[in-house]
Amino acid sequence: MTDFWTVLGIWIGALATLSIWSFLYKDNPFYKFAEQIFVGVSAAYWFIFTIYNVLIPNLFDKLITDFNSNWLLLIPGLLGIMMLMKIFPKYDWLGKYPIALMIGTTAGLSLVRFLETDVINQIIATMINPLNSGSAVVAFGQVILIVGTISGLVYFYFSKKHEGFTGGVAKTGIIFLMVSFGAAFGFTAMARISLLIGRLQFLLGDWLGLLR
């Protein structure tokens, strides 16, 4: 037998879903109530989760159990406290240093990674010889890939006026861009419908028990 708390959770989930959906008809108090509850519960959940799953195991536990090996953790701990100073107008300047450190470190790390993954490896992946592909279908796909990449790049090349041959290639690039936007829109529509399916499977199945 399903326990009381599970049933209660399903009912709260179902009523919250219907309240949020009611906005599709028009704005109303049920929607506002569910929205406020969601925001409040999310904030509280994240706050508690961060304390118990990030701060305690990664900082406090290590400092308490083995201070000598982990005393360096005092530095990130201090930086964290400095970041919290942003809430006091008099000391908010202290928060600038940890933020600057975070931005600098993240930018430095990401630059190398993005350069390797999104530039170098992507360029190498486009340097292919369709004549060696072994099958006509694969070769055709590879030709499309090469033409699409080059024409797309030409479209974003603004140091030469888009006319004549350059204009023709840029126009081809626009066609490829439009196709990719269409594909992206199609995937987005599919994703939204998938989420609706998930909610309806919950409402019709878990809540009402109508699905086999």
């Binding site: 993954t117 490896n121 992507q122 190498i124 992946a125 990719s180 995937f187 599919m190 994703a191 998938s194």
Partner: peptide, 27 residues
């Protein structure tokens, strides 16, 4: 990945094998 993110990951499925296949969305 979610279907929304799928087009952004398709270029990684390439000769360099940066990504080996992808299950993009519910379908």
């Amino acid at each position: 990945t979610t279907a929304v993110s799928t087009p952004g990951f398709l270029p990684y499925i390439n000769e360099q094998r940066q990504l080996i296949g992808l299950i993009g969305g519910l379908k």
